[in-house]
Simulated assay, not measured.
Amino acid sequence: MTFIPQQHVTLHGFNNLTKSLSFNMYDICYTKTKSEREAYIEYIDDFYSAERLTSILTNVSDLIGAHVLNIAQQDYVPQGASVTMLVSEGPVVEVPEETYEETPGPLPEAVVMSLDKSHITVHTYPEYHPEEGISTFRADIDVSTCGEISPLKALHYLIHSFEPDIMVIDYRVRGFTRDINGHKLFIDHDITSIQNYIPEDIQVKYDMIDVNVYQEHTFHTKCKLREFDLDQYLFGDTKEQLDKKDFDDITALLKHEMDEIFYGKNMNPPPTKND
């Protein structure tokens, strides 16, 4: 399949292609007691409040050179938050020479891109299993742009902001634009994998699976942390306070939860000390 870089094509009017990035992340935690589960949910709700999420989305907007038109934000009861941001094309600080190069985007200190009319949204879903002691935090973020800029340039910063245990990332180019002769263009940049927009120092931390449908301009990547340190997943105790059986059972339970989320299906539960 041959892609024609947009900078080599003269367009008829505005670039009407819509590029959409969906970034779905999970944080997993073991919360042994009801009070620990409630404390975890309270912590997540406070740390990822609508106000903080608005700050993250504002940085995303700045990274791609957008101007914020409107912000709607809401903290929900009993838990969760949402932010919706409408943005328009902002001033170009510096036009990069290789706009379409498959490389990770910058962090907020280096703003070099412009953006056409778009929207950015985030929704959070803290929840817990009432019996098994597993609590999870999920955040769904969508960055949708029209015009020349790919929202994939915001991916590096989003990973940096959430440091997730699991990521599910989708990117799709929809619609079409026309060149000066009226021929339709259904994509205006080369792309082989979402992974090319993730820095190598982050890639090495994750196991990754790609499912790409090139003819439909649809790209999908799933990521799960490779290394497992139980202390990173205990909300109350530390691993030194656990006996070997509890250590093994909790580790198996957490890895089972992560595998189910990563592969998107229910699996046989791991054996426990009572089996």
Rank of each mutant, 00 (worst) to 15 (best):
Q7P: 13
H8C: 15
H8T: 15
L11G: 09
H12F: 14
H12P: 10
G13L: 01
F14W: 11
F14G: 03
K19G: 02
K19C: 05
S20P: 01
L21Q: 01
F23T: 07
M25N: 09
Y26S: 11
D27G: 13
C29I: 06
C29T: 10
Y30L: 04
T31R: 03
K32E: 10
K34T: 15
E36D: 13
R37C: 08
R37L: 06
E38S: 14
A39I: 09
Y40M: 05
Y48H: 08
Y48M: 07
A50Q: 10
L53G: 12
G65Q: 02
H67L: 04
H67T: 11
H67W: 04
A72I: 13
Y76G: 13
Y76V: 11
V77T: 14
V77H: 09
P78N: 06
A81E: 00
A81K: 03
A81H: 05
V83T: 12
V83H: 03
V83C: 05
T84Q: 13
M85V: 10
V93R: 02
E98D: 15
E102P: 12
T103L: 12
G105C: 02
A110I: 11
V111C: 07
V111P: 00
D116I: 03
K117Q: 14
I120G: 03
Y128Q: 05
H129F: 02
H129Y: 02
P130E: 03
S135Y: 02
F137L: 02
R138S: 04
A139W: 00
D140Y: 07
C146Q: 09
C146R: 05
I149C: 13
I149L: 08
S150K: 04
L152V: 10
L155M: 04
Y157G: 05
S161L: 08
M167W: 03
M167G: 14
I169G: 04
I169F: 01
Y171C: 05
R172M: 13
V173R: 00
G175Q: 06
G175T: 01
T177V: 07
K184L: 10
K184D: 15
D190M: 07
I191Q: 03
T192D: 09
I194N: 04
N196K: 14
I198Y: 00
E200G: 10
I202R: 08
I202E: 12
Y206W: 08
D210C: 01
N212K: 06
V213T: 12
V213K: 11
Y214M: 06
Y214A: 10
F219Y: 12
H220W: 04
R226F: 09
R226T: 14
E227K: 11
E227I: 07
F228P: 06
F228W: 00
D229M: 06
D229S: 11
Y233R: 08
Y233T: 07
T238G: 09
Q241M: 08
K244I: 13
F247T: 15
F247W: 02
D248W: 01
D248P: 05
D249E: 14
A252M: 07
L253F: 01
L253V: 10
L254Q: 00
D259K: 09
E260M: 08
I261N: 01
F262V: 04
F262Q: 05
F262G: 04
Y263Q: 05
P271D: 11
K273S: 15
N274C: 13
N274W: 08
D275L: 10
